[in-house]
Amino acid sequence: MACFLVSAAEAAVVTAVEKHAENKEKAEIKETGTSVVSETRIPMSRKLKWLSYLLWGGAILLAFEHIWHGEVTPWFPFLTAMSNPADAAEMFHEMATVGVCMALLITGVWLGICFAADAIVKRPERAAEKVTR
């Protein structure tokens, strides 16, 4: 019904945090003259960008699905479920269950990707050795 709104809300917060982290990293580079971007470390702003792409991507494509099923309309109140209290209650229940689970799973997958990415960037020599063998 409107489960994508939970991920969209998280995406908005993550985008704001990502911009803040990016500005902080830029200021750090200006101050110290050294870049936080190294061959063995992925900057936090880049990792947050991955999460925001995952969340925005999912939320936008799911919003498209909801338009397809007539659950989202271009006129007020935009969500057809908001037209009567019974449907609205069902919608909020779906947001609290399905929507929250979607946001949690995406965040969990992103954490896994971050750990894997950190491990991968720390082993460039090993991979290069295997290729030359």
């Binding site: 489960c3 994508f4 991920s7 991955w50 792409y53 995952l54 969340l55 925005w56 991507g57 999912g58 939320a59 936008i60 494509l61 799911l62 269950t97 399905v98 689970c101 979607m102 799973l105 995406i106 997958v109």
Partner: peptide, 17 residues
């Protein structure tokens, strides 16, 4: 990639429910 994987994960949850 991020766009499609994000949507896939969200639809997976939908499918599980």
């Amino acid at each position: 990639c991020w766009l499609y994987w994000g949507a896939s994960i969200m639809w997976l949850v939908d499918a599980l429910f």
